[in-house]
Design a protein around this nucleic acid. Sequence first.
RNA 1: GGUCCGGUAGCUCAGUUGGAUAGAGCAUCAGCCUUCUAAGCUGAGGGUCAUUGGUUCGAAUCCAAUCCGGAUCACCA
Length: 593
Amino acid sequence: MSVVENLQQAATASLTTIFGQAFTEKDFQVNQTKPEFEGDYTVVLFSLVKSLKLSPDAIGTKLGDHLIRNNPSLFTAYNIIKGFLNLTVSDSYWMELLSKYHNDECFGKKKMNGQKLMVEYSSPNTNKPIHLGHLRNNFLGWSVAEIFKASGYDVIKTCIVNDRGIHICKSMIAWQLFANGATPETTGIKGDHFVGNYYVKFNDEYKRQVETLKAEGLTQEEAEKEAPIMKATQQMLLDWEAGKTDVMALWKKMNNWVYAGFDITYKKIGSDFDKTYYESNTYLLGKKIVAEGLQKNVFVQEADNSVWIDLTTDGLDKKIVQRRDGTSVYMTQDIGLAEQKYDEYKIDRSIYVIGDEQNYHMKVLKLIAEKLQLPNAENIYHLSYGMVELPNGKMKSREGNVVDADEIVDEMERVAKEKTEELGKVKDFTAEELVALYHNIGLGALKFFLLRVDPKKKMIFNPEESIDFHGFTGPFIQFNHARIKSILRKAPGSTLQGFGTPGGFLPLEKELMVALEQYPTIIQQACDEMNPSAIAIYVYHIAKTFSSFYTEHSIAGAETEEKKQLRLQLASMTANIIKSGMNLLGIAVPERM
RNA sequence: GGUCCGGUAGCUCAGUUGGAUAGAGCAUCAGCCUUCUAAGCUGAGGGUCAUUGGUUCGAAUCCAAUCCGGAUCACCA
């Protein structure tokens, strides 16, 4: 139990005893004490004034006295300033915590709680390579899954590959028209990029045809419908759903090119999945459920054969679930997948890591699932995150203005190499060790950059400015970890056994100690909010506090042996928490850098 | 137009769910490496928390209105 929880409980009990009426933890607030005041944690007294009809100071004095008398091992002193009761936590409490956990790499992690949940993330389309926006999704999904694991959940990481549909046909048509039989092998272009280029080509040609038709007198809408390349694409989708052999062969060939490319990227960025679904398998189940929904009158069929759901009574619009030509839409396969996930894994919760541009889609999906009475429909949760934007607006694959994932990872590794060589601290590393180090630092910088921001908020990336390696960054935190490891290598074997309290803590020692103690609470908070940035901000705070401490006070050369042992333990616990926290973000921390 | 999200330092972001004098990083300026790793540390400058009103002991935080920006409302995914 954390100090805050202890304090909340103790104060609730004390108030009830002193004043003879019932209190709960919500009747007052507990904060960390501001550095300019004496104490560690603060009870805000104002909210108690009304019900007790006493001054804040009178309440504070009684509460402070009672708390210290009844919890001598926890609190040793208090003061009251302007309605704030500041309590000082006893040194022995901190000493005990340190000696118990300084070497515990699992500090803050919980035991299995028996709940099973699924995190769906990444979920690429097979018509274009991964870009920076997708990286935010990948890092977020992976990290949230790890945070759930650390909180005791049984987690299944999953990915739905959107491997079919009109968008895939666009790349296929463009390849037929323009490629002259070229392949990734003949061109030397990575498969996902190769196919993505044809997706862009489709769009260019489509635009050109629309303009031509408009010049011939058609309206925009007519031209979009009549453009030959679009008609060919729609025909191809029909042929695909009919299983026409040459279309299927081309589809398989091109998708395999993309998968070969994705494999390389996924390996590089550390995305992995326990289960991969393919839309080409799930859409049929979706169509089956649509048919059943028609029987149940959840869906209605229009005269032109298209199938709809009317959500106007829920404050939404009508939504199509199957086209008039009988082909399935995005929603169709998502309905099928929702059921399949539950059938296969009997999950308690199903989390979808999907961009906020699809808030409406996900709201509709959940509503449909509920109306169809799919199992566990109410436990569908959309983890919605903001787009990564460039200074001049949104990234769009079909217009080619994207920050490519492979390129930016390579760029980060290149910068890591450059900076490492400049500093020249790891000249004895083997070639292999160097490659791993550049990778960990470069990718660490990138992951931290994307994860340190609240997922719900959109973020701006300026390619001109690149990603920093100084300050509130991954490499700064990695550096402090390496620095601690270096100290521990030189002065190993810390133990406080046989030592008493080494004469109180210095302010920076205390600050670090208080922060370290909060790690379990932070994991809990990050889990509740599904928010890795809480971990990122916290780990940075730890590293920053340690860094100040490190420059102010010598660890190996401390004034006394007790002080030295205490500081070694503090350093060790700091390193463990940095490592543990960074691992929850998917970032490795080097022993040296 | 309907719905939803956002607006905090020059830039990128925090702000413990209503608490004490609103904080970091980058950028700018001034210091600090014969001592445990300077990817570092210390300090300075930089704010009408979009605006106005309200709620109360107390508001960046809650409510209302207004202004600005974005997403979405597709037989695209």
